[in-house]
Design a protein around this nucleic acid. Structure first.
Length: 518
RNA sequence: GGCUUCGUAGCUCAAUGGUAGAGCAGCGGACUUUUAAUCCGUUGGUUGAGGGUUCAAGUCCCUCCGGAGUCACCA
């Protein structure tokens, strides 16, 4: 134990001791709660309405026992007010010395602190100013809070809620997420929405006849996306393993195994830089469905996001970064070539080699690292000129073949494949193909992509022979989609950093020196 | 990884190179319907860490740690 209590904490330790000396267990076990705070308040309102309607004899007092954390205290000589909060809401406590007795009243004033957990028994009532409260008859400490949380106060000023002293230090909020959650109710709401997002996705896909599956996170060969992996090691098997960078290849094997439609929601790991939209581990949704092509997937994406937004926020319209965004179908569909031509003035089809396209881009004054492959140049045009403008949901489709090794060609167009990405608020939200199911073509693509990588002096993903073997048994035509769930949650909660929608975003280690001391 | 910027009391923030401060919280007191409760009094600091310049450093310089932003990376 390396805890060195600060002055405030020592004060609380003293109170803890006083409670114990008075025979009070500050961390008792059993709790008899009759209502959540939300339930207690709701039941009281119902009772009030009934009483008003009947205008007969006043109803018997509504007795409740509620539990929660003390969020604020306003002490008086003979009467105290406090706010108690649990996971469902907040209610005021009205504590009179005559009701709880001198001893308990003094205990409350002297030895209880903000953020202690409390059980109170009493009747629901309204104070003179009309505030719904619990008129407390008995109170019991459930858990002493030894370290103080930030004290947040709010006030109504000109109809606006103004917050004072909110816990807002980004770093500490993420390092001590528990304190962030305890202190900031709106942060708790983010993760409720996140949970609703995941369950809405499942509800929708289950309803469409998809089967939810789980595939390996530890993989002997990684693949299915363009990313550097994390590596790890299995001691007993004496085997190097990779944390998956996508689910793609394992899910498509299941189509060979004759499941028609499968999906997985889970964690991907990519050993790359972090940014407002990148975390080393993130939650991905991928689905694959047999006998359809990417036009079907476009429709399903539109329907899925509308459904999820409706479930999570009660509307297909969302407000993000000050923009009103309509998720209901149909979304704009824009061919990649047209989008780039229109926004950048460059028609890459007229510059069909990397050398030609690079020259055209440099003539436009675009700065480029040397020797990018053709498809990467096109991605750069997309990222620089098109992506930031795509505020309303937009499906960009038909991508260059050389950066899309798992997508089927556009018939009669050797340059393009049946791939689309959809963008909302300038952010890539999903990536989809008509999946390549020709094992000979797939092998050729693997070879091509590895060659491309070799030229870039980058590590290519190892060739997955087993995946090719699976495909040789026969894979039905199909289309698959990958959607970043974290980014979707960002959209639905109007948060502009992925860290805000991850309970424990990755942060650099801090204070290692302190640990080595002990 | 590059560049920019930030790090001061438990929390939110001040402080021309010149005695480190405020509000909230805490502690003591007053108050039987308060609500950012109010009123009186009061405690609280290795200014992220280390070095340097200076008579004097929270402030200027260097290194390191951490955060944020941005660029790069992200078949």
């Amino acid at each position: 134990m390396t805890w060195q209590p600060n002055k405030l904490e020592r004060e609380r330790l003293d109170k803890l001791e006083r409670l114990q000396q008075n025979g009070i267990d500050p961390f008792p076990g059993a709790v008899a709660r009759t209502h959540t705070i939300e339930q207690a308040v709701a039941a009281f309102k119902v009772q009030e309405e009934n009483t008003a309607a009947s205008s007969a004899d006043p109803a018997a007092p509504l007795m409740v026992s509620v539990c929660g954390r003390i969020r604020s205290i306003r002490t008086g000589g003979k009467v105290c007010f406090a706010d108690l909060e649990d996971g469902t809401g907040r209610v005021q406590l009205f504590i009179r010395v005559d009701a709880v007795g001198e001893a308990r009243y003094e205990m409350f004033r002297r030895d209880l602190d903000l953020f202690d957990y409390l059980q109170v028994d009493g009747q629901m009532m309204r104070t003179r100013s009309g505030e719904i409260s619990v008129g407390v008859n008995q109170l019991k400490v459930l858990a002493k809070s030894l370290s103080p949380l930030p004290v947040v106060k709010t006030a109504e000023v000109d109809g606006q809620t103004v917050t004072y002293g909110a816990f807002s230090d980004t770093e500490e909020r993420f390092r001590q997420r528990y304190a962030d959650l305890a202190s900031n109710a709106e942060v708790r709401e983010i993760f409720r929405k996140r949970a609703r997002t995941a369950s809405a996705v499942r509800e929708f896909l289950d309803g469409e006849g998809f089967l939810e599956v789980e595939t390996p996170i530890l993989q002997p060969i990684y693949g299915g996306a363009a990313a550097r992996p994390f590596t790890t090691f299995h001691n007993q098997l004496n085997q190097s393993l990779f944390l998956r960078i996508s689910f793609e290849l394992y899910l498509k094997r299941l189509l060979v195994g004759m499941y028609d439609s499968v999906y997985e929601i889970g964690r991907d790991f990519r050993n790359e830089g972090v940014s407002f939209k990148h975390n080393p581990e993130f939650t991905m949704l991928e689905w694959y469905k047999a006998y359809v092509d990417y036009t079907y997937s476009m429709t399903l994406c539109e329907r899925l996001l509308s459904f999820v937004a409706q479930k999570v926020n009660g509307s297909t319209q969302i407000s993000y970064d000050g923009n009103l965004i309509e998720l209901a179908p149909p979304w704009r569909r824009w061919r990649l070539r047209d989008a780039i031509r229109e926004m950048s003035g460059i028609d890459y089809v007229e510059h069909p080699t990397a050398e030609q396209l690079e020259k055209a881009m440099r003539e436009k004054g675009i700065e480029l690292p040397p020797e990018l492959p053709w498809g990467k140049l096109i991605e750069k045009l997309l990222g620089d000129f098109v992506e930031p403008t795509l505020i309303q949901p937009t499906i960009i489709y038909d991508y260059p073949r050389d950066i899309s090794p798992f997508a089927k060609s556009v018939p009669g167009d050797p340059m393009h494949v049946q791939r689309f990405e959809f963008y909302i608020s300038g952010m890539e939200m999903g990536n989809a193909f008509t999946e390549l199911n020709d094992p000979l073509d797939q092998e050729q693509r693997f070879v091509e992509i590895n060659k491309l990588f070799a030229e870039q002096e980058d590590d290519a993903a190892p060739l997955d022979e087993d995946y090719l073997r699976a495909m040789r048994y026969g894979m039905p035509p199909n289309s698959g989609v990958g959607i970043g769930i974290d980014r979707l949650v960002m959209l639905l909660t109007d948060r502009h950093s992925i860290r805000e929608v991850l309970l424990y975003p990755h942060l650099r280690d801090k204070g290692r020196d302190e640990e080595t001391e002990g």
